[in-house]
Structures are given as structure tokens and as C-alpha cells.
Computed example of a mutant assay.
Amino acid sequence: MKQTEKMLVIGACGQIGRELTVALRKQFSRHCVIAADIQPEDKIDLEIYPYKQLNVLDKEKLEALIMEEKITQIYHLAAMLSANAELNPQAAWRLNMDSLLSVLDLSVKYRVKKVFWPSSIAVFGPDSPKKNCPQQGITEPATIYGISKAAGEYWCKYYFEKYGLDVRSLRYPGLIGYTAAPGGGTTDYAVDIFHHAIKGETFTCFLKEDTALPMMYMHDAIRATLELMDASGDQLQVRTSYNLGALSFTPKEIYEEIEKEVPGFMIHYASDFRQQIAESWPQSVDDSQATKDWCWQPAYDLKRMVSEMLSKLSILS
């Protein structure tokens, strides 16, 4: 029953975590959802409370929190994203993998009912199909972030099959939202571009103008997460991670859509090391398995997303 659930969102101050925490509290109640992140409590907005400062690599503190709060569901979002991970591979591996293994171990020990862990399109690599990349597409990632996500998917499947732990996962595409700043991902240009447009500043894009990537508005991503977690376990045929799709566009295409609403907005292109990362990923994914298993359908197209992003950021700026 919903009223008996006690949820822990790890990485609650991040791009996904903040909005997921709000959504879970609307669905359940404020005090059923504990937000946790590495930031000190005196740096946290009141709206984030109840909040616990947590370094997820500290397994003893994580265990104490799960035990004391009698946690029944864990949403483990803490990670180092693709671009930042390439700059510090070993630290990225420790954060992305050691924390997942701690969450899985403790979830078995304390009989946590459900665990959500996000994967990524980064599990695919240069040899994966570029268009409509299938659920079972080749996963030979070319980045440390992708390597950690690919390995994590199989750890999740292993814990489900070995221990019966109900772990669920989505391969998020690039996510675009207005509540948090870009967090060091290769697709973050599609968030940063809106901030420059609102300020009337020329935007310099670190990808080439024709680089198509799978993308998604944050509202769709949060809804997909909730729908997956609400689905009956009997419906789910994938225990690694589901492909999740919505949009696919290039920097030029999103710029042109923004410029319709912000006339005179300018863009320049200066590709860097992130271009090579982007070129190793698919341009679009086939998410028909998610549609079949739990009726996934996106709600936002490019035009609707751009309009809402500009509207929301104008209010916040």
C-alpha cells in the first residue's frame, strides 16, 4: 500500500533527482520520501526537506539510513556523467559502480521492495545501429560512463535473478529540464542553450550542428520512471534496462526552433572532445519493448518542449 512506503532518493539535488523527488511526494506524501545527496544540509532549499546529507560511497552511513528510516524503495541517481567521467575515469568508476553495488547489497539485506537505477544510451557504442537502435543492440561503449552503465545493467539483472531483488532501469536519452543547471553530460548543450537564449547571449555549442542524438523532456522522463516503478513485475520482460525514446534532433534543429520564439538568437559551433562521445552513440532508439511491456508513450515533441522550456525559464530568471 502506498501509505506504507518509505522511499530514499539518492542524488536528490541533481537534474533528475530534484524533479523525481517532487513527483514522488505528490504521488505519495512529503514524509514518505527522503531526499539524500552529498551537499550539506545548510546549503539545501527548504523544499528539498526531509533531507539527509549522504556520501553514497560511505556504505556504513548508507546502511544506517536504510535501516533507521525503514526504506522500502530506493531511487539511486548519484553518478558522474559522461563528459566529466572522461576527465576522471577512476573516480567515475568508483562512484558509478561501487555505489550501485552497495545499494544492491543493502537492498537485499534489508529486503527493500524495489530499486530504480538509471542507465543510459551511453551503453551503446560505435558499432551499435545508429538509427532505431534496438533493445538488444550491441553494447560496446566507448566511454567510462558507458562502460559503468553497461556493467551496472548486468549487475541489476544478476541481483534480480540471484536474489529476487526487484531492480528496474531505464536507458535515459539526453534529458532537458529547467530546474537544475547542466551536470556534465554530453547532451547538456540542449539544456545550456535555453539559458543563453533567455539571457540574450550567443551560444557556443560543443557539438557539430548536424549531430543527432536521442533526447527527452524531463517531464516525460519522470513520468516514464513512475510508470515503470508502478508496473506489475510480471509485465516486465527486461531486467537489464529498457530503451526509452521520445525525441531525436540536432543542435541546428533545436536552435532553429528556439530562434522562432527568440528572434535574433545566435549560435556558433566549436566542437570539442564531446563530439567523439556523441558520435559513438545512436541517433535514435527503438523503445517498442517499453511500449509493449508497460505502455510507454512520450507526450512532448520538439516544438512543445521548446515552448515550455522558454516559458518556465523566463519565469525563473
Rank of each mutant, 00 (worst) to 15 (best):
2 K>Y: 13
3 Q>E: 15
3 Q>K: 12
4 T>A: 15
6 K>I: 01
7 M>K: 14
11 G>V: 00
11 G>F: 01
12 A>E: 00
18 R>Y: 13
18 R>D: 05
19 E>T: 12
21 T>P: 08
25 R>E: 03
28 F>N: 04
29 S>Q: 04
36 A>N: 07
37 D>V: 00
40 P>F: 03
40 P>H: 02
41 E>N: 07
46 L>K: 08
46 L>S: 14
49 Y>A: 14
51 Y>A: 11
52 K>C: 13
53 Q>K: 12
54 L>F: 03
57 L>F: 08
58 D>I: 11
61 K>Y: 04
62 L>G: 00
66 I>M: 04
73 Q>E: 15
74 I>H: 08
76 H>Y: 13
77 L>D: 04
77 L>Y: 03
78 A>T: 01
80 M>G: 03
80 M>E: 01
80 M>L: 09
81 L>Q: 04
81 L>K: 00
83 A>F: 11
86 E>I: 00
91 A>E: 14
91 A>S: 15
96 N>P: 00
98 D>G: 08
101 L>Q: 15
104 L>V: 02
109 K>T: 07
113 K>T: 14
114 K>A: 15
114 K>P: 14
114 K>I: 15
117 W>H: 04
118 P>M: 08
120 S>Q: 10
125 G>Y: 10
127 D>W: 12
128 S>V: 01
129 P>H: 14
132 N>P: 11
135 Q>F: 12
136 Q>D: 07
136 Q>T: 03
137 G>I: 11
139 T>C: 06
140 E>R: 07
141 P>F: 05
145 Y>S: 02
147 I>E: 12
149 K>D: 08
153 E>K: 05
155 W>A: 12
155 W>Q: 06
156 C>G: 02
159 Y>R: 01
163 Y>V: 07
163 Y>D: 07
166 D>G: 01
168 R>E: 02
169 S>P: 05
171 R>S: 14
177 G>M: 09
179 T>R: 13
180 A>D: 02
182 P>W: 06
184 G>D: 09
184 G>E: 11
186 T>H: 12
190 A>P: 10
192 D>Y: 14
192 D>P: 08
192 D>R: 14
192 D>L: 09
195 H>L: 13
196 H>A: 07
196 H>P: 00
199 K>D: 11
201 E>K: 15
201 E>L: 13
202 T>R: 06
203 F>T: 09
203 F>I: 05
205 C>Y: 03
205 C>S: 14
208 K>N: 07
208 K>R: 09
210 D>R: 02
210 D>V: 00
210 D>A: 04
211 T>N: 09
211 T>E: 12
215 M>Q: 02
216 M>V: 04
220 D>V: 05
221 A>Q: 02
221 A>N: 05
222 I>L: 10
226 L>V: 00
230 D>E: 13
231 A>G: 05
235 Q>E: 07
239 R>N: 10
241 S>Y: 13
244 L>T: 10
247 L>P: 01
247 L>F: 03
250 T>V: 02
250 T>K: 01
251 P>R: 08
251 P>V: 14
252 K>C: 05
252 K>D: 06
258 I>F: 03
265 F>E: 08
265 F>N: 15
268 H>K: 12
268 H>M: 11
271 S>G: 09
272 D>S: 03
273 F>L: 09
278 A>T: 02
280 S>E: 04
283 Q>F: 01
290 A>K: 13
291 T>H: 12
294 W>E: 11
301 D>V: 06
301 D>I: 03
303 K>V: 07
304 R>K: 15
307 S>C: 06
311 S>H: 13
